[in-house]
């Protein structure tokens, strides 16, 4: 088992605008048992890609832990989760569970080699983690049942299904991976993908898949938690490439203008349409100007 050596940095909290550096984040990715070689390979590939994306933006490669294949045994997972609080104290903790889930005796089970790990066991382990922001992504069949048990004020929970009854292997994971590796998920184009954007993209793509195939969708993903816009899961572009070179005052200005835009949008219904768009134009031009300075390394 890897030990965790978190790198701490000062945080610039934001609403939609990422700080120059990613908040200290520990990411754990676990792929479960596929049941056949095709699924084994697929889950392994998904988990590996998710971990790679997380490492690209992590402050340290050691902040990302990948557990897959035969290693993903119950005692390994339990021990990993139990020891996290001891070894690290991250701002954000993210867990991805990729694989099959099932219901047995009214109990959710994440299918892994050897005895499965139950929903209750996972919840107990996760409740020990003190990170103020937590994102738990359970991309398995029947995962919706965990929404209630995992719910916590500091936690965002994404599940691939609505409830325990959606038992088919899920397609959601495929689009989850796509969201992390493709900029299309970045709806506000701020070069950072939030948990909310991750979910929205994967949910929408899953729905499109079933619509295009003219099939009744057997899975309906869910997201719960207040912090979904505040947890960053991926970033790209200038923000990633020049993260150490961006002047803090530019980011502060960008933050200020962005706040004004949000405030204007909130008042849209109360403002005359032409006035609204004129004001929006001024703010957008200012933001574009700041953006150009950031891009040019100013």
């Amino acid at each position: 088992m890897k030990t965790l050596t978190p790198l701490w940095c000062s945080l610039l909290l934001y609403a939609g605008i990422p700080a120059a550096s990613l908040a200290s984040t520990v990411t754990v990715v676990i792929s479960g048992l596929g049941g056949n070689s095709d699924y084994d390979e697929q889950f392994d590939q998904y988990a590996t890609t998710i971990a790679e994306e997380a490492r690209r933006v992590a402050n340290s490669p050691q902040d990302v832990i990948l557990v897959r294949g035969e290693a993903a045994k119950k005692n390994v997972i339990s021990s990993l989760l139990e020891n996290l609080p001891v070894n690290s104290n991250p701002e954000v903790f993210t867990l991805y569970l990729i694989g099959h889930g099932s219901m047995d005796n009214q109990q959710y089970k994440f299918n892994i080699p050897g005895p499965d790990i139950t929903g209750a066991e996972l919840t107990d382990a996760l409740n020990n983690i003190k990170a103020p922001k937590q994102l738990i992504v359970v991309s398995t069949s029947s995962s919706g049942v965990l929404q209630e048990t995992l719910a916590a004020s500091n936690r965002v929970v994404i599940t691939a299904t609505k409830n325990a009854k959606e038992r088919n292997a899920v397609r959601f994971t495929e689009y989850l991976v796509e969201a992390l590796t493709d900029t299309a998920a970045d709806l506000d184009k701020n070069e950072s993908i939030s948990a909310q954007e991750l979910f929205s993209y994967a949910q929408s793509a899953t729905k499109s898949y079933y619509d295009n195939e003219n099939l009744l969708a057997p899975e309906h993903a869910r997201i719960e938690g207040e912090l979904a816009d505040q947890i960053e899961v991926a970033r790209y572009g200038v923000l990633l490439e020049k993260k150490d070179d961006i002047a803090p005052e530019l980011l502060a200005r960008r933050q200020s203008v962005s706040n004004q835009i949000n405030s204007l949008k909130a008042r849209k219904d109360d403002v005359d349409e032409d006035t609204y768009f004129d004001t929006l134009q001024d703010l957008m031009l200012e933001l574009a100007d700041i953006q150009r300075s950031i891009d040019s390394g100013g």
Binding site: D188, K189, L285, A288
Partner: peptide, 13 residues
């Protein structure tokens, strides 16, 4: 309005 940081849209504006 949807994507304030959309560079191509900023350029066109």
């Amino acid at each position: 309005e949807q994507a304030p940081f959309f560079r191509e849209a900023q350029d066109l504006l």
